[in-house]
């Protein structure tokens, strides 16, 4: 196997890189300050590269799958209707300081957006974006990346991956051809790393303790569509979409038409969430998931069973946002742990 191409850069150089990107009309997005969101920046001094920071409130998915996105605009004319393509020219975009749990979610979502129908809206955003991931040394009681097959140093989904080293420097790995091309294009900010540079790497962050075994969770789910557990965990769920909307991998959407007056309007794709009662309600009035426990079972099963069945990996990267923000303290890792416990009793 060919060794990953490694480079060395510094905090200062990355800030200068922002300046260069800005001059070349790139969209530059940086992780926000502690506990905030990703922000658009134009100035190197606004760049936040902090391995210790808490995950942003919303994940990076909004840059590939926005909370609301027009599919087309329509306008009535004398003969009929004009359809207008909303796809404005996307500028080349770079996302700085993306945590492994956010970056890994992009290829995971990519599977469903390229399964039968190729979602050009998602794909063109991915194609236009360079993801600069970064090793993460933050960990709180809600984090569980290590239970989802990732780690604080997973470069999955990143095009370039930064690992902090001594003296405010970073070892940068070009993970994908796109990442390599980016480093080559902006080579004045990245030097080839030699053996001594690599020795400067800081100790690998430990990450959260492993909380559950996802394969065992799936095994249990295979045989427990009906189970008292669903009522236990689902009956106090109040049915909002905080979990789904802050999740880096949840990708359900609704399509609605909105008028801008009598003669014109647009069709938009909006985030939707499976905990809403309306999500599965049929036009007839029948709702196959009429109660919250059934909706909660869907959430867990989609994450750990259905996605695994269909695409070979789980729909969760362990960022912990769903639990961190749940108004009634429902904890997905704890439910997976409980399932592990029940599984081991059965075996």
């Amino acid at each position: 196997m060919q060794a990953m191409k490694q480079f060395i850069t510094t905090d200062e150089k990355l800030r200068q890189l922002v300046h260069a990107l800005s001059k070349n009309a790139w969209n530059i997005i940086s992780a926000g300050k502690e506990g905030t969101n990703f922000i658009y920046i134009n100035d190197g001094k606004d760049l936040v590269i902090n391995a210790d920071s808490k995950p942003t409130k919303l994940s990076a998915k909004e840059f590939f799958f926005p909370k609301t996105e027009p599919l087309f605009f329509y306008k009535k004319n004398h003969d009929g209707v004009d359809l207008l393509d909303p796809k404005d020219v996307l500028r080349k975009t770079v996302l700085f300081g993306v945590k492994p749990c956010d970056a890994a979610a992009v290829p995971v979502m990519g599977k469903v957006f390229n399964w039968d129908y190729k979602d050009e809206f998602f794909n063109r955003r991915v194609e236009q974006t360079v993801i600069i991931g970064m090793a993460c040394s933050y960990s709180d009681v809600y984090c569980f990346c290590t239970s989802t097959g990732l780690s604080p140093e997973s470069s999955k989904g990143s095009d370039v991956f930064l690992k902090p080293a001594q003296n405010s420097s970073y070892i940068a790995e070009a993970v994908t051809p796109k990442g390599e091309a980016f480093v080559v294009e902006f080579s004045s900010f990245f030097d080839a790393a030699n053996e001594n540079d690599v020795k400067l790497l800081l100790n690998s962050p430990k990450g959260p303790e492993k909380k559950f075994d996802a394969n065992q969770v799936k095994q249990w789910l295979d045989g427990h569509f009906e189970d008292p557990l669903w009522n236990e965990v689902g009956e106090t769920c109040l049915g909002c979409a905080q979990c789904a909307f802050t999740c880096p991998t949840c990708h359900c959407f609704d399509i609605v038409d909105e008028s801008c007056g009598y003669n014109c309007g647009r069709r938009v794709k909006n985030w939707d969430g499976c905990q809403f009662g309306l999500f599965t309600k049929h036009a007839s009035g029948h709702n196959p998931r009429g109660h919250q426990p059934e909706r909660y079972r869907q959430r867990i099963s989609h994450k750990f069973k259905y996605y695994q069945d269909k695409f070979g990996e789980i729909l969760c990267t362990g960022c912990g946002r769903c639990t961190r923000g749940c108004p009634v303290g429902i904890d997905i890792a704890e439910i997976a742990q409980e399932i592990n416990k029940r599984n081991s009793v059965l075996v």
């Binding site: 109040l238 979409a241 789904a244």
Partner: peptide, 30 residues
């Protein structure tokens, strides 16, 4: 539009919230 505000509100108990009404749609869901 995650509606966590509505779902956690003890005074938001309408069987069908106006924002979920689609015929006609009073409030844009975007």
């Amino acid at each position: 539009k995650c509606y966590a505000c509505r779902q956690t509100c003890p005074m938001c108990y309408c069987e069908q919230c106006i924002v979920d009404k689609t015929v006609p749609r009073w409030i844009e869901s975007s």
